[in-house]
Write a protein that binds this DNA or RNA. Structure first.
Length: 838
DNA sequence: GCAAGGTC
């Protein structure tokens, strides 16, 4: 009988590899794939078995709302609290779910008796993995339910608040960048920390203080003494003490003490501490630091870089790790010293039960790595060597003096053992020599300075300080901290300035001040703690999953209702900070209703605002917009605009601001950039009907007038780009297909005529007289770009970049709608056939 | 377009 089969699925590929290596003793066969599979024969519960070890990649499932709730304008955010949720594949591209499901099924069929176990190890080390295999436990459903609970709560709370406040403030103020004004139980308290520091700085009231600083001359050196009172905030009192001291003039040494002190070596390096050092000492942001670390890990220079543990496992091979660095040109001598004199057992640290601390795995020198990677690697090495080095020891001498009834002192520091500070020199204790004193010595003061100083506010919060605060308050995890910081930067709530200091923006400050005046809980770190604590009850099996979720959501729903009710208070702060629409923007084009100029507001989302009609017209985003020759839309009299998408191959197209926001014709089921959702009939911002989708029969800018022929790539229509001269071109109104027309022509225009053979629009080309291909120097030529031999030889199909990200989906959406809007008969021919010669 | 948390 074939040996029983054992399938093991780890949480990530690195752990699958560790498990397989440990159980098989390195004797396994590894198959590459979306996730690697390691196969080998071994022993399972005392019996021979055939193992397959693979992994998922992070969470298999994410959650989201069903389609019905995806339309922002059709859903009241308060309904989201009770909305159903769907599990979706977290990484559909990786096909993890499908692959694992099928392999589990295959395994089930192969196994005579199916059983599920969980190997729960306390660290990713061979010893602990083997130990776990010998005491397998049941999978813990409570822990899985706790993960579900967190996903549901985070989704509903975050999305409800985000949609509400975005909808409320978007488009209300001209100089407010408000594409999305997000809220989240992690990102908002993170922002809160930055703003709290900002408020400390701005509300700081400096105070003057005074300190007595007697100076003495000993052996030709001047020494300044420190006052036991440190400093006083009353000048008259300080002056009085100065007078007393000056009257006495003689200092007496009252006491001398020597103390052996020690500065401890660091514990092992975990991810959070790596990120803090990377930010404060190397100037790398957390994302950059993790990318570098990831690369160093893949190249085998350092161990797995995502860990919370600072304690080394008892089985850690210090000798081997030191040995790997023994010949390093940078630290070789130091390492050999440690190996011969005996390295020290590291400080205990904390064991989070995951990977061991981050350590070097093999030696590298400066030339083998890129500059930044080298600097990070260097730190990992120095830190590791620091952890196994002796502590730094020094003697602290304190000499105490009295004069005029006041007491002063000076401190001397003498390092006896440099220890780990010789490999981490920035942590060194600086030597401070004192002259010889003896108790009872009497010394004349040379000068008694009355130092005047001022208390100063703290600096902006550094990224490194923020990471510490987040860690301390349980905001985010080692894996997500950097994502939250990145988030508040991208949302334009804070900016990273020199020295990686986080400076909140007007938007960030106003938001936090708003929460503070409506419901401070919303931006306090405890909000995360509350959620985590509730979820913990589920994980430990002490409370029912759905009861906890309902309870937490009910609380947040009440907070949400109160927030909505009180939003005016927040808005008052916005009003004070940002300019109302009417005051911002520049006059761009005329409104078709009142015939006055509307203002263009360039901050996101860019839009037009008619001050007379008090109407906002959204525009396509991420490009430039200008007036189109003062032409007007025949339907509504609004002046037309030309929008040019960013980039060298960015298309340009005309649009009417009114039609763009309120498509005038029935049957336009797809809009620029997205399908129009039937139920609500409202437009997403930045989504609408440009002229190239307009079926107006006579307007010269419509699809009918500017459409030339069917797109060879999709169901769309190729349209003349009206301002592409002299690089004339057609672009598809649906996909990113691009067709270059005769270059350098003076003018190219569509005509009202159709090709008798293929029904394409006849175009008229006015060639440049110097480069005209026509005989006898003629410049004017009309024809069909498909059937006219001359024109056909002068056009070229190209693919523009990023016209639409998802051209395929777009084309399908149009396909369902038939050939509507494609002009008279343009859709009849087989588009691929018509471009067969290209 | 929206959260957070996994990992790549």
């Amino acid at each position: 009988m074939a040996p029983p089969k054992v399938l093991m699925v780890a949480e990530k590929p690195s752990i699958a590899l560790s498990i397989a290596s440990s159980i098989s003793g390195g004797q396994m066969h590894s198959r590459k794939g979306s996730t690697d599979v390691h196969e080998f024969e071994g022993m399972f519960i005392g019996l021979p078995a055939y193992f397959k070890v693979t992994s998922v990649i992070g969470h298999v499932f994410s959650v989201d709302f069903p389609a019905k709730y995806q339309d922002w304008s059709a859903t009241d955010p308060i309904d989201l609290f009770q909305a159903p949720i769907q599990k979706t594949e977290a990484n559909p591209k990786e096909k993890i779910y499908a692959l694992k499901l099928s392999s589990v099924l295959v395994f089930k069929q192969m196994m005579l008796e199916e059983r599920f176990h969980r190997a729960r190890f306390s660290s990713v080390t061979g010893k602990d993995i083997l130990k776990a295999m010998n005491c397998l436990v049941e999978p813990n459903k409570c822990e899985a339910l706790a993960v579900d609970a967190r996903q549901e709560i985070d989704l509903k709370v975050g999305v409800a608040f985000t949609r509400y406040q975005t909808g409320y403030f978007q488009g209300k103020y001209g100089d407010l960048d408000s594409r999305v004004i997000s809220y989240g139980p992690c990102q908002t308290p993170t922002l809160g920390f930055c703003v709290q520091r900002y408020l400390q700085i701005t509300t700081f009231k400096p105070e003057k203080f005074w300190a007595l600083r007697p100076h003495i001359m000993v052996d030709g050196y001047e020494l300044q003494l420190e006052w036991e009172r440190h400093r006083l905030f009353d000048m008259d009192v300080a002056l009085m003490f100065q007078k007393l001291v000056l009257q006495d003039r003689i200092l007496e040494v009252t006491d001398m003490s020597e103390k052996q002190e020690s500065k401890g070596r660091p514990p092992g390096l975990n991810t959070v501490n790596l990120l803090k050092i990377a930010s404060s000492a190397l100037g790398f942001g957390p994302q950059m630091a993790m990318q570098l670390a990831e690369r160093l890990y893949i190249q085998g220079f350092i161990s797995y870089p995502r860990t919370e543990s600072t304690a080394y496992p008892s089985s850690f091979d210090f000798k081997g790790t030191l040995g790997a660095l023994a010949n390093n040109p940078m630290w070789g001598d130091y390492v050999q010293g440690l190996l011969s004199d005996g390295y020290h057992k590291p400080q205990s640290g904390t064991d989070a039960g995951d990977h061991p601390p981050i350590t070097p795995m093999r030696s590298a020198n400066e030339d083998m790595l890129e500059r930044d990677a080298w600097r990070l690697y260097q730190y990992v090495c120095q830190h590791f060597l620091g952890t196994v080095s002796p502590n730094c020891k020094y003697i602290r001498t304190k000499v105490e003096f009295s004069i005029g009834g006041e007491f002063f002192h000076c401190i001397g520091l003498h390092v006896t053992v440099k220890g780990f500070t010789s490999i981490m020199p920035w942590l060194a204790v600086s030597e401070k020599n004192l002259p010889q004193f003896a108790k009872g010595d009497k010394i004349e003061v040379s000068k008694v300075e009355l130092f005047e100083g001022q208390t100063a506010p703290p600096d902006y919060l550094s990224e490194s300080e923020l990471i510490s605060l987040m860690e301390k308050n349980g905001i985010g995890t080692d894996a997500s901290i950097s994502a939250h910081i990145n988030n508040i930067c991208e949302r334009n709530y804070v900016q990273v300035q020199a020295g990686r200091k986080l400076v909140p923006t007007a938007l960030g400050i106003t938001l936090i001040r708003g929460y503070q005046c409506i419901d401070p809980d919303l931006c306090l770190p405890d909000i995360r703690g509350f959620i985590e604590q509730q979820i913990n009850l589920v994980a430990k099996g002490e409370a029912d999953h759905s009861c906890v979720v309902q309870h937490v959501l009910e609380q947040f729903k009440q907070k949400y209702s109160y927030f909505v009710k009180q939003i005016d208070n927040m808005d008052a702060l916005f009003e004070a900070q940002f300019s109302p629409l009417a005051d911002s923007g520049r006059a761009l084009s005329k409104c078709g209703k009142c015939l006055r100029y509307m203002k263009y507001i360039s901050s996101q989302p860019s839009r037009l605002y008619c001050g007379t009609c008090e109407e906002v017209y959204y525009l396509p985003q991420k490009g430039t917009i200008k007036l189109y020759k003062e032409l007007t839309c025949p339907l509504d009299n609004f002046e037309l605009l030309i929008f040019s998408m960013a980039g060298p191959e960015g298309k340009s197209f005309p649009l009417c601001p009114f039609c763009y926001n309120s498509p005038p014709f029935e049957g336009i089921d797809t809009l620029f950039g997205v399908s129009k959702t039937g139920s609500s009939g409202k437009l997403g911002k930045g989504t609408g009907m440009p002229c190239f989708l307009c079926p107006h029969p006579t307007c010269r800018h419509s699809l009918i007038a500017q459409g030339v022929c069917a797109c060879p790539e999709c169901n769309g229509t190729l349209v003349l780009d009206p301002i592409s001269a002299p690089k004339w071109r057609l672009y598809c109104n649906m996909c990113n297909c691009l067709v270059l027309l005769p270059q350098g022509a003076h003018r190219i225009a569509t005509t009202r005529e159709r090709c008798p053979e293929c029904d394409s629009t006849i175009i008229e080309v006015d060639f440049n007289k110097n480069t005209t291909p026509l005989e006898g120097g003629a410049t004017l030529h009309s024809g069909c770009i498909l059937c006219d031999d001359l024109l056909h030889s002068l056009v070229e199909v190209k693919h523009g970049k990023s016209f639409f990200k998802r051209a395929g989906r777009w084309a399908r959406a149009r396909g369902r709608g038939g050939h509507r809007g494609r002009g008279r008969g343009l859709g009849k021919m087989d588009p691929k056939m018509s471009f067969r010669d290209f």
